[in-house]
């Protein structure tokens, strides 16, 4: 009996926090900026720290993952004498799965955690209260630009990741392993479709960006404002963010590519 009651209480608690996070998301998007020019400045600043600063890790990981895929794919495909198909393998793997998913995971680690820590620290040093006291809504001023920047950056980063991955794979397979480049491109172009592959991958990245950035800013905003609390919130951002990405990826893949 007691266990059921506890379970029920835990469920209600969980539902409540989901509701709070939902209201938080809606409020931070809906509140329109009072001064458009200043909001744009804030957004640009966040695009810089969320997007531009994540560029290096995304480009480097993308290139290496493309190169590894090409090596692995080549050694297996060569057994069937169809090593030209390495381009097809590379493009489909990157566009459909690795591009959006790996970029989102990197993004959760690189940008998500720093968003949480930054907002958490602003809370701990009473900067958020200070905004409130000045009659400035911290959701509008602090959260909204960060959220929007995250949602813009992740899909762009994911495209850049896929493109560098394909270029990395091209270098390995064509320039080093001697795959014929005409066959490499034509097999790739034959099997890659703009809507099912590129667009679907992009849509995935958009979903991931909303989930990860939402989790990151919410964890920062709701964290216990102590050094321990910020640490925990940062960890939660990475853990919950990664889990959300993988779970969402399953659902989206089933909806997009599963033939039911």
């Amino acid at each position: 009996m007691k266990m059921i009651a506890e379970l029920g209480a835990a469920l209600l608690n969980w539902l409540e926090s989901v509701g709070r996070a939902g209201i938080f998301l809606v409020q931070s998007i809906v509140r329109l900026p009072v001064r458009p020019k200043e909001s744009l400045n804030l957004l640009v600043k966040q695009l810089y720290s969320v997007g531009v600063l994540s560029l290096v890790i995304v480009v480097v990981s993308g290139a290496f993952i493309g190169m590894v895929l090409a090596l692995q794919g080549y050694s297996i495909l060569a057994k069937f004498g169809s090593e030209e198909a390495v381009g097809q393998l590379l493009a489909l793997a990157l566009l459909r799965e690795l591009g959006p998913v790996v970029t989102a995971l990197l993004f959760a680690g690189r940008a998500g955690s720093s968003l949480t820590a930054e907002i958490g620290l602003m809370k701990a040093t009473e900067q958020l209260s200070s905004f409130e006291m000045m009659g400035v809504d911290p959701l509008r001023r602090v959260i909204a630009p960060r959220f929007i920047a995250g949602v813009i950056c992740l899909p762009l980063l994911s495209l850049i990741f896929s493109a560098t991955g394909i270029i990395g794979g091209l270098v390995v397979s064509v320039n080093w392993l001697g795959v014929h480049d005409g066959a490499f491109w034509s097999l790739m172009q034959q099997s890659v479709y703009f809507d099912t592959d590129i667009l679907n991958g992009f849509i995935k990245a958009v979903f991931f960006s909303v989930a990860v950035t939402w989790i990151a800013v919410y964890q920062g905003y709701e964290c216990v404002p102590t050094s321990e609390g910020i640490g925990k919130a940062t960890t939660r951002t990475v853990v919950l963010g990664s889990l959300a990405i993988l779970a969402l990826d399953f659902v989206l893949t089933a909806a997009m590519f599963g033939d039911f």
């Binding site: 001064r35 600043k45 040093t125 009473e126 900067q127 000045m134």
Partner: peptide
């Protein structure tokens, strides 16, 4: 309100901090 920690906005200079409420309101 003068907060215990000062609560200056860490991404703005001293002058920008003081100008902020005026710019906003």
């Amino acid at each position: 309100m003068l907060f215990q920690s000062g609560a200056l906005f860490s991404d703005m200079s001293v002058a920008e901090n003081i100008a902020f409420p005026m710019e906003e309101h």
